[in-house]
């Protein structure tokens, strides 16, 4: 098991499965608190900041699905966030115009000319792009374990970064700017902040519930078995590589959903979303919140982004404060905020 938070963390918060029916109550409470918070918060917190929080919370939850429940540390998850953002931003702004594909001397005329996509189709395009990238990256990365897995994902993410820097349609250093939010299903105008907020809210809660279900499915049980003891899972007849690949693609897809939504919120796809520091930040957010807990990543994102936002006047000091908090987190509360809370109430969260 290679979770950096250490083995004891999970042991003490581990769950008693048969008591799910009764023991699920506190989770419902936590879920309702979370939903109520994001539903009511825009009345007293800047909504655009909250939309960023929800996008990143979904991103961190997708990352946690892989690290917290399969034990795979991907150090290149920004590539899925970023590529989905670029894909969604591009089709939302430019549509899709491909006259022909040229492969050497082969010339395949396509004559695709689609007008700018509506937001739901743009997001779908972004999600699809992340899923495909996730499949390719997953095929390569899951052949190795531990630190090698992390390094391969990092290397692939760097390749994606340079692709986004150099490719003709990503706008290089400028990114894709002034992306129109468009009209959802051709009806609801998302340039209205309330409509945009509601859309992001639905996507976040939907994504969160999907992740919750994946964790608590028969597939999720096998994921945890692989996290706990991969050779043993193999010896029980599970083809662990296939489970890991599917988990990887699911995680990439959901990260893509976060990235595409984020691009629409900020009407921008830029290089910072594919940069390796973004991959690092999601690790930080997940660890601060609580690795391998359902609600941890959400709390972690709120904490980290909250610091960035409200301590912004400190300038470069924000990074130092963040670093210090990360060190304190690793030294004193290794289970993360939610992890410690769960241990305190002796229930999984």
């Amino acid at each position: 098991m290679n979770d950096p938070a250490g083995a004891p963390a999970l042991s003490e918060i581990a769950i008693k499965p048969l008591k799910h029916v009764n023991g699920a109550a506190h989770r419902w409470v936590a879920f309702i608190v979370m939903v109520a918070f994001f539903a009511l918060a825009p009345t007293f917190i800047y909504p655009v900041f909250l939309m960023k929080v929800m996008c990143f919370a979904l991103f961190a939850c997708a990352f946690n699905l892989l690290l917290g429940y399969v034990g795979l540390l991907s150090f290149g998850h920004a590539m899925f966030l970023g590529i989905a953002g670029y894909a969604a931003a591009y089709v939302a702004k430019e549509g899709l115009n491909i006259e022909a594909i040229r492969l050497g001397t082969i010339h395949i005329p396509l004559n695709i000319a689609l007008p700018p996509f509506t937001p739901e189709l743009a997001i779908l395009t972004g999600v699809l792009a992340a899923a495909i990238l996730g499949y390719v990256a997953g095929l390569l990365a899951i052949r190795r374990q531990g630190i090698y897995f992390a390094m391969i994902t990092l290397a692939l993410a760097q390749m994606v970064y340079f692709f986004c820097l150099q490719a003709p349609f990503t706008g290089g250093e400028d990114g894709i700017q002034a992306v129109p939010r468009g009209k959802l299903f051709g009806v609801i105008d998302l340039s209205d902040v309330k409509a945009m907020y509601a859309t992001v809210f639905v996507i976040f809660i939907g994504g969160f519930l999907v992740i919750f279900r994946i964790i608590h499915s028969p597939f999720g049980q096998v994921m945890k078995a692989i996290r706990e003891n991969e050779p043993r899972a193999t010896s029980l007849g599970y083809d662990t590589d296939r489970y890991k690949l599917i988990a990887f693609v699911l995680s990439a897809t959901l990260a893509g959903l976060a990235g595409a939504t984020n691009a629409l919120v900020f009407q921008l796809a830029a290089l910072n979303a594919v940069h390796w520091t973004m991959s690092g930040e999601v690790v930080l957010m997940t660890l601060v919140g609580g690795l391998g807990t359902v609600f941890g990543p959400v709390v972690g994102v709120l904490a980290v982004l909250g610091m960035e936002n409200y301590l912004a006047q400190l300038g470069a000091w924000v990074t130092i404060v963040q670093g210090a908090i990360f060190v304190i987190c690793v030294l004193t509360f290794r289970r993360g905020i939610v992890g410690e809370l769960a241990r305190w109430i002796k229930k999984p969260l």
Partner: peptide, 19 residues
């Protein structure tokens, strides 16, 4: 149960409840 679960064939159904 993880071993018994094998008899279901592949447990790739991530959309179903573990119940």
């Amino acid at each position: 149960r993880l071993a018994l679960q094998r008899k279901r064939g592949g447990s790739f159904d991530f959309w179903r409840s573990e119940r």
